[in-house]
Design a protein around this nucleic acid. Structure first.
Lengths: 252, 252
DNA sequence: CGTTAATTTGAGACTCATCAAATTTTGTGG
DNA sequence: CCACAAAATTTGATGAGTCTCAAATTAACG
């Protein structure tokens, strides 16, 4: 089921001390079916997977590492749409248009497995049940975007930051990349500000508030959630939106 | 292919003077297959289709009328996530969780056709190709949410408002519900403010700016885009994100 | 171990929110 | 079809939240 970690080339310098995590079941299923393990490509930190304005002829399964999806506006500002974690598919939205609407790039060293659109179409022909499950799973991305929209549209900066830290915590924990109250991630203040529509100096001040309140700290590329309950209360965080039902769980 | 307007009961009191628009092809296909026309239910303005916190056991095809998807926050604020227009599916994200994350309610009189999840599952069994196309089409919603996220996160109020007016214009035009430079829609300032994360008085002032600049006017539930080019330039509006490729157009 | 990247601090300005009230428009029952 | 109640728009004054700019400090990396 899960991708076998030792089968991939070990990467001692990886920022992530953990092994390759378990993939969500549909990702594992597709991975097995299309032999994606063999197709894995290693990327360095900062490499683009998808480039805005360019045709995108594949979707990618992120096997290891962290990436972001973002848009650069005409005035040079950046808006990060979401963080992409192991087990997530990359480029699903981008390949739906004749040129990609967003860019995706790695934040750490990463391993990705491309799935050419032709393979996806073939899958829809030869294995339509799996394809349906896969496509169904794609729509869960909308829930995360919607939650970001709510946070950015209607919540003050401190709640947004708290919410982001908790979302990443919850998602990483789910795939075995976080422990009880912390996770490793090169989450710079610039990334936070671009994800939440804030300025870097203000994010800095917000982080100080969280630190002084004993709620959360970022240090040495490590995010430490010191008081989960209080932070969740502050952020009005409820992790249901990160736990979509698979197609099989819909009708009990 | 398209839904036959006269076949549906005419609704003289409808706020919308136009007839039922052509559905997108996948919607038409599913509609025909499941005989959704016969299943159409009429709703009055302001009725809830999906309620946050409640189990949602169906998706709905909006056949006629306008709806919004939104969340009410703990402090009573509302964030509108998107506007739902004829031909759009409702509740796709909501039914993916054991209780709906958002509410959906009509803004005008409307006609919807429920598709029980069981029917959707059955479709995936009996007609997996169609199901795959349908599920694939669901993921285009993410592009609209992403664009909203960018607007709210990184653009000043006047650009957000301009962007929203143009998005609705473009989407309505596509389904035959807008003419050259205007469309009918009960778009109150409260709706705009809740969609864009602004206050009502400020939206009011922004609309005055747009009006005085000769760019756009809202009057008598009608939105008039007086200068499309200039408004689009102001908003940095590019409608690619509203024109996803169907699954068949992906590999040319 | 230097050089670039990231964080931190301060001062000042500006966008936009809040609150309150007046005005206009819309919907509705008589 | 009018009159009234409710909803929506408009205006003003004030203040909070957040941004910008600039520079200093600290941390990361080859």
């Amino acid at each position: 089921m899960a991708v076998d970690a030792p089968a991939l080339s070990p990467r001692p310098k990886s920022l992530n001390p953990k092994l390759v995590p378990a993939l969500p079941s549909i990702a594992a299923e597709v991975s097995a079916l299309l032999d994606l393990k063999a197709a894995g490509r290693s990327l360095r930190a900062g490499q683009e997977i998808v480039s805005e304005g360019r045709r995108c002829n594949a979707v990618f399964l992120l096997i290891e590492g962290i990436a972001i999806r973002y848009r650069i506006l005409r005035d040079g500002q950046r808006q990060i749409l979401n963080f992409i974690l192991p087990g997530d598919f990359v480029g699903v939205t981008s390949c739906r248009f004749d040129s990609a609407l967003y860019s995706v790039k790695t934040l750490t060293a990463a391993t990705i497995a491309p799935i050419p659109l032709s393979a996806l179409m073939a899958l829809a022909e030869t294995n339509p049940q799996t394809a349906a499950r896969l496509f169904w799973s794609f729509s869960s991305e909308a829930a995360i975007l919607a939650e970001h929209l709510i946070a950015i549209g209607r919540r003050p900066a401190i709640e947004r930051v708290a919410h982001l830290l908790l979302e990443l915590f919850s998602r990483l924990q789910r795939i075995g990349l976080a422990d009880e109250r912390s996770y490793r991630l090169p989450l710079t203040q610039e990334l936070i500000s671009d994800a939440l529509g804030l300025s870097i100096p203000y994010v800095n001040r917000i982080l100080q508030q969280l630190r002084h309140a004993g709620l959360a700290t970022i240090k040495d590329r490590q995010v430490i959630i010191q008081n989960i309950e209080e932070l969740a209360a502050l952020a009005d965080f409820e992790h249901t939106y990160l736990r979509p039902l698979s197609i099989g769980e819909l009708v009990p």
